[in-house]
């Protein structure tokens, strides 16, 4: 089945939703502030004849007019990184400080990880973990090109991540951008829809719940845990957050986003969720002409 039809009833304008999902997305780059400023990147694109438009809500994002970013000088120099617009949201929500210790539980290929590093001024410590050794090489490659020096890379199963290699007890914050069904990326990767199965949804939610639980446990009281996916499936979004509310010491923190979103859903397929999930954000492709996304912000309470 086409999974988009499964979610059309959740959407205010199903026709606009379906139409947006079929339009390809522009190539977007994030300015890597470890190495360059947005002004210098813009000047280099001008010199090179690369067309671009600034993304309004973030002063370090540019939509490219034509080609992908890989064949430009700013990319070669590590001044920019190709990253879909909505994928830049979770690190903005996490908003780490320089000097923090931050865990990125599912880090590869490192777009959000390196964004966290840049937001921290390449200071403090980002621990970028991924269970897949092959994908870690992509993370390493990106981090080297972007000139990141505050990143420690680990290869553990995030569900039972151990802090043993380090000499501290807990992180100040964590980003939990889990493996998911990925229909939200269909505008870049149409196979995400073809490969979708309900069995995969059901099997992946257990992993998602376990990783989010571990992140909450590994974060200091008062610390922030951001949970994000690129799926519309409530099983992988609100249900996972609801599970964390019931089983871990945490609460949902309301937050604003600089783009249009709709509240998380409290009912789905016979299940009901804690009403606080209405303080989490769903982003459908037709709302801002982006990919699809889900984002929740939690505070660790004990």
């Amino acid at each position: 089945m086409n999974p988009l039809e499964r979610y059309a009833p959740l959407v205010d304008d199903p026709e606009a939703f379906r139409a947006a999902c079929q339009r390809p997305l522009p190539s977007v780059v994030r300015v890597n502030t470890i190495k360059a400023t947005a002004d210098r990147v813009a000047a280099a694109f001008d010199t090179e004849g690369v067309g671009y438009e600034p993304i309004e809500w973030h002063d370090g994002l540019f939509a490219l007019a034509e080609r992908g970013p890989g064949t430009t000088w700013p990319y070669f120099h590590g001044w920019v990184h190709g990253q879909e617009e909505v994928s830049a949201l979770p690190a903005v929500v996490l908003d780490p400080d320089p000097g923090d210790r931050v865990w990125d539980a599912c880090a590869a290929p490192g777009s959000k990880t390196t964004q966290l590093s840049a937001q921290m001024g390449d200071q403090g410590l980002v621990v970028g973990n991924d269970s897949n050794l092959g994908r870690l090489s992509a993370l390493r490659h990106n981090a080297e090109r972007l000139g990141v020096t505050n990143l420690a890379v680990t290869n553990q199963d995030a569900r039972n991540f151990s802090l043993k290699p380090f000499d501290f007890e807990a992180f100040d914050a964590a980003l939990v951008d889990v493996p998911c069904s990925c229909e939200g990326t269909c505008r870049k990767n149409p196979t995400a829809l073809e490969e979708w199965t309900i069995d995969h949804v059901r099997s992946v939610t257990g992993v998602q719940k376990s990783i989010l639980s571990r992140a909450i446990q590994a974060t200091k009281p008062g610390g922030t845990v951001v949970y994000s996916t690129c799926t519309f499936a409530p099983e992988e979004n609100e249900a996972v957050v609801d599970h964390a509310l019931q089983t871990e010491d945490c609460r949902i923190v309301p937050f604003d986003l600089p783009i249009d979103t709709v509240p998380g859903v409290t009912e789905w397929d016979g299940a009901t969720f804690d009403s606080a999930v209405t303080e989490t954000h769903r982003i459908y492709p037709h709302l801002n002409d982006t990919g699809g996304f889900y984002c929740a912000k939690l505070e660790v309470t004990a």
Binding site: G99, G147, V148, T149
Partner: peptide, 22 residues
Amino acid sequence: ICAEKETSQALPSPIEIEALGM
């Protein structure tokens, strides 16, 4: 090379992880 400003947050040595800094 690894960003490590505050000695109070120094990493232990040796450390067995996949990568550290650049």
